[in-house]
Amino acid sequence: MRHREWALAVVFAAVLAFTAWRIAISWGPGYWVLDCAAGSVVCVLALLRGRNRAWAAFCGLAVACAAIATAWLAHLPAEPGPGMALALSVLIGSAVRVLPVRTAAAVGVFGLVMVAVPSSMTVPNGVAWVGGVGTGVALRLLALRREHLADTVRREERLQLARELHDVVAHHVSGIVLQSQATRVLARRRPEEVDGSLDGIENAGSEALSAMRTLVGLLRDDAPVRPERLEDLVGRFDGLPVLLRAGDGRDWPPEVTGTVYRVVRESLTNVARHASHAASVEVTVTQDGDAVVVEVVDDAEPRPSRRGGLRERLEARGAHGLRERGGFGVLGMRERVEALGGTLVAGPRPEGGWAVHASVPLP
């Protein structure tokens, strides 16, 4: 059992022991046996509820019914006692939290029938029932909210995928079309330069295929992924060595894990598009107190392309300028992080290269 279950077992044992002592004082020796035995059975079911919540809840309620009938026929202290009522509260709350609506409603109604049975414990048992149902409903609504946020993250990721593919395809295909048109002119005026122009078209096509492979690899997953799967993302990043340092994010909610994955993916996408001449990239994901910190750093400097033409130099300068101004990718990351109450800073480093630093608070 987990630490939480052990703590709950200690509480159950203490309540059962205290109730048995009080019954022995007020009713006399021997009258506490039914309450302690039936209560222990329901408490054990509550501790084992994770295996089958519906089965545990209905069995616990059935034991409570049998205890109520036995106590009434044998003129014993009223059931369910405090220990059993506490265990039933846990069973009912657990069922209401995760079971299908009809099954959860049946468990809640069955528990309400137990409370409605006239006895000296009606008010305490009613409080326990309300507490169990209220806690279960609250946790169910919280889970639904997280699921809705996860769906929102997935929808935004699909839209981002469409934007990224459009940008890459439009950029590279436009370049190929322009060079093809230029080649047609050269074929009429300077045929001896056609081979060089065709080489340029071939190189542009190869660059387009390489960029498409990298981006599709980075963008093909449309669902938020746990931080452990950042290794898969890094493994699909072609061309540059990436050093990954990722913490354990098993307890992070889906909206946080999705945002972390989104920031790393967009940052690597920017490296692939604007800093392919970098020597290395470092990705760090850690939990600092009540926040998750993401850092993606490359060591690239802005430089013109190897062909050295005026158009290529302007394109290289414009690409780095886009990074400095924080293009749509950086804006999307910042909006995602700020929507969760976090902060994101992206810009050039004094020692050279580019850095993205995001801090996402944990709820």
Rank of each mutant, 00 (worst) to 15 (best):
A71C: 11
R313S: 15
A170I: 02
V133A: 14
R145N: 11
W55C: 00
L209P: 00
L340R: 08
W354S: 13
W354G: 06
Q287L: 09
A223Q: 15
R140T: 13
E192C: 01
S180D: 06
V130Q: 02
P302S: 09
F18A: 15
A116T: 05
G327F: 02
M333H: 01
L8S: 11
V130P: 06
G321N: 08
G30S: 07
D232N: 09
G326K: 05
L159R: 15
L230S: 09
V113A: 14
A56V: 04
V283P: 07
V194W: 05
I23C: 01
L344E: 10
E79A: 14
E5A: 13
R236Y: 02
P191N: 07
H171M: 11
G83Q: 06
F58N: 01
N52W: 00
T259K: 03
A182P: 01
L233A: 08
R226H: 09
I92Y: 00
G321M: 06
V216D: 07
G205Q: 09
A56I: 06
S305C: 05
L47K: 11
G247K: 01
V153C: 10
A64I: 14
S94K: 04
S359V: 15
A150H: 10
E79G: 03
D290S: 08
T152I: 08
G309D: 15
E157R: 11
H357C: 04
E255P: 05
V177F: 04
H320M: 07
L61V: 03
Y261H: 13
D290Y: 02
G341I: 14
D290A: 11
A7V: 14
V283I: 12
P227G: 05
L88S: 02
